[in-house]
Nucleic acid binder design. Structure first.
Lengths: 253, 253
DNA sequence: CTAATCTATATGTATAGACAACTAAAAGGT
DNA sequence: ACCTTTTAGTTGTCTATACATATAGATTAG
């Protein structure tokens, strides 16, 4: 009757059962930052499993950032990192749905263009290179939330599907229409005031504070293959970031 | 003369040498998304090492998100995730330094207060609970960049050091002055216009678009132990996020 | 009393092997 | 021609073991 923690006959891997057990201990606060876990040998002996299996469980905990190990000393519960901010700006289709609203993307304009000097400069390409240019507006229950302008190199000449243009992932679009493979991206988030054009599309008064995000997609050779900007309504949009070990609890508070 | 890829006599672990080798192959684009890695047995045989050592290397690649494995099929190079945004808003001390500027934090006000109704509501505590309240302004080369207002529960009554108040990590402060241990945090980023007070502290004109970030620190029982807000000058601050496999290259472009 | 050495203990690396679970293609039967 | 079964090959899990390396405290030498 020592333990129901590890069931060797379960189809669930032993290392995973152990991992989940310690994760629970830490998330609930029963194991607190700085506390030492039992040594690997102790755990192995207690549950009659191999030390390598224990190490696999601890390895998972380590890469989840929940514990850290010190050679010669032991394994300890880590302090949660509460100093970074992780936003998901792209998949707001799902976000809007989750709020019980109906997301929709409307294509305002889509054209094949030849790059002028300004665009050529921005994309690092030659003037007159063929590009795909389009603008969309994203609405929730009919109300505009974001306004996107995007450019991608159009070298494959594949047919353009409206469903593709609506895809919030610029990198996926770039993969479809350029013959380079997206490898890295750079995003810059700024605050700005809505221009007249933006205000009209978004249905707000000109000068309203908005988020301005530019996005650049690079291939493995660090060449630009796509560029886009998105304007988010400042009065309807905010970015929320959760971090730590009992995140699920605080989301409902 | 088959390989200089793995040196068994090196002090660098074999699995790490292997990991670095494949990482390089992927980052450089010689291995592209979708490409299959050699099988574990092949790699093990080729370099005369154990399969478990190969698996360790692949495990590192997997948790770095660079490859994925499919049972019964093989190991494949993953497509980079280019759809999230990771910002580091807090350690801008380092950021400012990196730009060759001189960061400084100035304490505007620091007091022990008893929570009024509004604050008690916000922190989820009783009215009259003792709290630490303070405001700081962060400058680069003397120019104000951000303006922070923070509250933490003050239950330990430890002495307050000015060096602590300047710490950009609110969770560290909360750990020092409350007897709860920070476990999770919630951050909300919005756009706003500078109020008169904010504009004066930041030395800008009232109404300038600014970033507004609120931050709430919770303990393991999901109780609030600290709250803060930060105003970032919109004309001087932008958030940059890099993702992908050749990030180091595009940073210099 | 101090400094160097030893010892016990902890995690880190690496090996060799066994079997399970899954995949895809080959082989076989109807 | 079609469906089923077999088979080879792959990753996943787990074991048992050996030695390396780091830590902290006890022991010892001076």
């Amino acid at each position: 009757m020592k333990d129901e923690i590890v069931d060797k006959n379960s189809i669930i891997p032993i290392y995973y059962q152990l991992f989940k057990y310690f994760e629970k201990q830490i998330r609930s606060g029963r194991l607190q930052p700085g506390d030492a876990l039992p040594t690997e040998m102790e755990i192995a002996a207690r549950y009659d499993i191999s030390r390598m299996t224990v190490r696999r469980a601890i390895s998972e905990l380590t890469s989840a950032g929940m514990v850290y190990t010190q050679k010669g000393k032991g394994t300890f519960v880590a302090r949660p990192r509460l100093d970074s901010v992780v936003f998901n700006l792209n998949n707001f289709f799902d976000e809007i749905k989750q709020k019980g609203m109906n997301p929709h993307a409307e294509l305002l304009e889509a054209r094949i263009i030849k790059a002028d000097e300004k665009l050529a400069e921005r994309l690092g390409i030659d003037v007159n290179t063929r590009c795909l240019y389009f603008r969309i507006v994203i609405t929730a229950d009919g109300e505009p939330l974001a306004y996107e302008t995007k450019y991608t190199i159009y070298s494959k000449q594949t047919p353009i599907l409206e469903s593709q243009l609506i895809d919030p992932l610029l990198s996926r679009l770039a993969a479809a229409h350029s013959d380079s493979i997206p490898s890295s991206s750079k995003k810059v988030l700024m605050v700005s005031k809505a221009t007249e054009d933006e205000a009209e599309v978004l249905g707000v008064t000109s000068g309203l504070p908005v988020f301005f995000m530019s996005q650049t997609i690079y291939d493995a050779d660090s060449k630009i293959i796509a560029w886009g900007k998105t304007i988010y309504r400042g009065d309807r949009y905010k970015l929320i970031s959760y971090e730590g070990w009992n995140v699920e609890d605080i989301k409902n508070s």
